[in-house]
Write a protein that binds this DNA or RNA. Structure first.
Length: 265
DNA sequence: ACATTGACCTGAGAGC
DNA sequence: TGCTCTCAGGTCAATG
């Protein structure tokens, strides 16, 4: 479930491990994950170049090279990266292996093959072309900008937060967490929410994302008072002890506490 | 405009 | 043990 905090963690991982070394070889075993780029093109762009920076927008990671544009990675449901000497066997067959002159390599693994690998000359243009909304963290332009996003939009709260064209970065799991902490029901209609609700939502979102990033998106390290560690269990609401609701919204399993997250009147 | 559903994909876990 | 089934969920397209 790589969502914004997970991807941010991978971004930092790349920054601290994989920059400034000459790329000596690229192996791709993921034709159907490639988007608008061929294997040959990808190899030609990366080989001999060096990564120099990394950026993130929503759930997309951009790894910039010195000369030939940006590698774009999307982790789908299960994708992850692994940097190292490669002497230990990989847990899954890597779809992407980038070897460096220092004998280490960055491997990308997508056990369920739902990820995306692409190339762009301009991350901002890529984001634009994808129609992605503002990044959920960069919406650090403040609560007012966040609240303004909701003007003129209807529908359910959870659907809006999960819509990457509306706001980029939240997925199923963290959306539930944000709503739980904001004490808002996922099925609440946007039209029923007041400014105070939206500001509270903004604060919860910031808190959830900041905390999760600080803990490297490791579920084991997230506070037990959060909803997240109690998903998929019969455990009750970590706040009131009552039974959690398990419903489907947009085909996604949604957890909520009906007592702590009442529908707006 | 918004919601719902299914396809994509395959590992994990449950149940028998 | 090993088989079968269901579920997980990001994104996209199709349908209501």
């Amino acid at each position: 479930m790589p969502e914004l905090p997970d991807v941010e963690t991978w971004k930092r991982y790349v920054e601290s491990n994989a920059l400034h070394q000459e790329i000596s070889g690229v192996r791709i075993d993921a034709s159907r994950m490639l988007q608008d780029v061929s294997k040959a093109e990808l190899r030609r762009s990366l080989e001999g170049d060096r990564f120099s920076s990394a950026r993130r927008h929503g759930k997309y990671l951009f790894v910039g090279t010195e000369r030939n544009g940006w590698l774009v990675l999307h982790f789908g449901m299960t994708g992850f990266l692994s940097y190292g000497s490669g002497t230990e066997p990989d847990p899954y067959p890597p779809s992407l292996v980038i070897r460096f002159a220092n004998e280490c390599r960055l491997a990308g693994m997508w056990p369920r093959r739902l990820g995306r690998i692409s190339l762009t000359s301009d991350p901002a243009a890529f984001v634009e072309a994808k129609g992605l909304g503002p990044d959920a963290l960069v919406s650090g332009r403040g609560a007012d900008a966040f609240v303004a996003l909701f003007r003129g939009r209807g529908g359910s709260l959870k659907s809006a937060l999960m819509d990457q064209k509306f706001l980029a970065g939240l997925g199923n799991v963290y959306t539930d967490e944000v709503l739980f902490q904001a004490r808002l029901h996922p099925r609440a209609r946007l039209s029923d929410l007041g400014e105070a609700d939206l500001k509270r939502l903004y604060n919860s979102m910031r808190h959830v994302l900041d905390t999760a990033i600080e803990r490297e998106a490791d579920p084991e390290r997230l506070p037990g008072t959060w909803l997240l560690p109690h998903r998929n269990r019969d455990a009750g609401c970590p706040r009131c002890g009552g039974a959690l609701q398990r419903i489907k919204i947009g085909g996604r399993t949604t957890y909520a506490c009906p007592a702590c997250q009442p529908m707006p009147a």
